[in-house]
Design a protein around this nucleic acid. Sequence first.
DNA 1: TAGATTGTTAATCGATTAACAATC
DNA 2: TAGATTGTTAATCGATTAACAATC
Lengths: 210, 210
Amino acid sequence: MKEDQKIPNPVVRRLGLYYRCLNKLYDEGIEYVASKDIASRLGIKSSQIRKDLSYFGEFGKRGVGYNVENLIKKLETIIGVDKNWNVIIIGAGNIGSALVNYPGLKKEKFNIIGVFDADRSKVGKKIGKLTIQHISQLHEFAKKNIIEIAVIAVPENAAQMVTEELEKLGIKGIVNFAPVKLRTNIPVEEVDITLSFKTLAFKIGREGSR
Amino acid sequence: MKEDQKIPNPVVRRLGLYYRCLNKLYDEGIEYVASKDIASRLGIKSSQIRKDLSYFGEFGKRGVGYNVENLIKKLETIIGVDKNWNVIIIGAGNIGSALVNYPGLKKEKFNIIGVFDADRSKVGKKIGKLTIQHISQLHEFAKKNIIEIAVIAVPENAAQMVTEELEKLGIKGIVNFAPVKLRTNIPVEEVDITLSFKTLAFKIGREGSR
DNA sequence: TAGATTGTTAATCGATTAACAATC
DNA sequence: TAGATTGTTAATCGATTAACAATC
């Protein structure tokens, strides 16, 4: 199967879930696992796991299951977390600052190497080990460093402009926390916090009526 | 249409997107808008918007479009942001602290009324206007206040326990930032930041091969 | 060998889109 | 009236699941 056919988005997201689950199993000392067991942990169907994996190859042994350590390694390569990623953060507000110190990211090989903000009163201040730089220094910074991923954590009205700048600098992907749809050709992942609250509000409202 | 039939999840999420887009249009002083215009702003199909709205009623005028102000009000009621929501945050780490100060939430009527942490060394410290309380005080707090939504921003291994506690206290919904699937019957919205980075990494890796 | 579980196909389910009559 | 756009149905597309032969 292993071609570069289009992989459905839900599949991509689940790969990360499998990866996480496998790591937990590994920590528990489990050597072999059946799709059925992963499925029950994640609350999905075992056939879905097997189907998802089949996009990339055959990793299991019939009658036995999957070797946990081996499948972790395979998923690492497939997802791309077998390497380190250099990340910068644009916007040193609440969200931006939190991400700089967020241990989850470093653990997963996403290394934050720079923080930028347009507010000169923030420039020079430290967040963890990093010093906030003015956004105008980004261009220079990009010449000296390989930046692969940028996080957009700026106010809504600045997000599109920043995106265009990032695209020019050759950044490869964006994680967008601003509540706008970005117009760009590079891959974007949206993390829309207020939207999640709204979705939850809706669901709570419906709970009673069932 | 307006029954309490099941609304597909993607529809619910898009309602929030429509709401946001309509507010922008309102700020721009636009009175009437066609589904085609909303669609082009959001990068989706106009028939999808009309279909989504049709789950809840008829809000447009044929040949004319939708009255922006009116549709905003309707969506407010449908989504449930016509009222204020009381929110508490469990876990005063990076993410938890950032959310307390996050202006986006208050603006959307999600009012954070308490922050809790298990780490006694954090208790008593201030985040914005709120004082971090010890998690053991939660029970007491819940008696004196109506808490509707809880944010879980604790380490993975504490998340399930916290969830069960919250369920007992009668909390109505959870926004979960911990990287685990919570087993609970109350509605949960997942915000999985590291998963988004992984998904992005995968997409970047595929970009080249297309 | 008997039992278990994979990888894959085909069937099912659900969500998106096109099309168009209704109507402003 | 002529033009525009809705609300809704039916067609299409895509994703999930069941089923099972292959095989460890």
